[in-house]
């Protein structure tokens, strides 16, 4: 398969990249890991005139923790996130999402910024990022702005980023004690799958009293974007975590999803699985919350 022709740019700083995106507004696309973009270009789904590669910008690949904040450069590869002990400790559900994504070969190329920016409804990283309340650092020649990830996705392949804007980093507040999260995905086989359903849940307990202070449930692959489940969250908040409560939350999550039928799965199955995965990820979140005190 032959890639269509394009002009190629490889800036070495974020500001140069922003400059290029501004100059070629409308005809340039950002190339991160390329695992989505190049495939779509080979399939002639996309045909950008220019590619601006983010592969040689060292400042994009930082992963660090300071003052209770996890800063993940948008250029960090998914395999780096999957292997990061810091992510495993502070944002385990994100680590699980990274481990679930694609294949080892894809993970070595794909970046967190690309996984967010391509805005695929079934993407593995957004649900966890949503439940952690991650904030995206967006850069353009106009400067920097911060946007909660929940406000970023607008539809399949559509985002709130301006044409000349790039994701520079993802910022996560490290969850406090008695907080935990879980992530599960369901596809057809155990690797290299487009998810049929993927769900992340987050619970924050009120210390040893074990009342749920905060709850967030995010559903992937069951709507045009990853979705929050306000109904499930409303069921959970202020209650003591029990199996029965999680069942109620799972039912509520099913009501909040908007699955469609496609060749990968029926709407009915997806809705059913939202319930199963919501309950299971809540159980994971509870276990982690109890262990983090």
């Amino acid at each position: 398969m032959i890639l269509p022709k394009f002009e190629f740019h490889e800036p070495t700083s974020i500001s140069d990249a922003c400059e290029l995106m501004a100059r070629h507004r409308g005809e340039a696309r950002l190339l991160a890991g390329g695992t989505d973009l190049l495939v779509n270009m080979k399939k002639k789904v996309l045909n950008p005139k220019r590619l601006v590669s983010l592969g040689r910008i060292p400042e994009l690949t930082q992963v660090e923790r300071s003052n209770g904040t996890l800063w993940i450069g948008a250029g960090a590869t998914v395999s780096a996130i999957a292997a990061s002990a810091m992510v495993a400790r502070d944002a385990s559900a994100l680590g699980l999402g990274a481990r679930a994504l694609g294949t080892p070969l894809i993970r070595n190329l794909a970046t967190i910024g690309g996984n967010i920016g391509s805005a695929r409804p079934a993407a593995d990283l957004p649900p966890a990022l949503i439940v952690y309340g991650a904030v995206l650092v967006l850069r353009s020649v106009a400067g920097e702005r911060r946007l909660p990830i929940g406000e970023f996705f607008k539809g399949p392949g559509l985002t709130a980023a301006h044409e000349d804007e790039l994701i520079a980093a993802v910022v996560i507040q490290v969850p406090a004690g008695y907080a935990g999260a879980g992530y599960l995905n369901l596809g057809v086989r155990k690797a290299q799958d487009c998810n049929i359903v993927n769900v992340a849940s987050y619970l924050e307990l009120d210390g040893r009293a074990e009342v749920i202070r905060a709850a967030r449930v995010a559903l992937g692959s069951v709507g045009p974007t990853p979705l929050r489940s306000p109904s499930a969250e409303a069921v959970l908040i202020g209650q003591k975590p029990t199996e029965a409560l999680f069942d109620l939350a799972a039912d509520a999550a099913q009501r909040d999803c908007m699955p469609i039928l496609d060749f990968r799965g029926s709407a009915e199955y997806r809705r059913d699985m939202v319930g199963v995965l919501a309950r299971r990820t809540l159980t994971m979140a509870l276990a982690e919350a109890r262990s983090r005190n």
Binding site: M1, F8, E10, L31, G33, G34, T35, L38, V39, K42, K43, S53, G55, S79, T103, P104, L105, I106, N108, L109, Q192
Partner: peptide, 27 residues
Amino acid sequence: CDLGDCGACTVLLDGKAVNSCLVLAVQ
């Protein structure tokens, strides 16, 4: 496959195994 699905084109790029059909030569 030329689409990053099969792994037959795997090479090590700076020591990391990648699908070489999903990497531009210029990269």
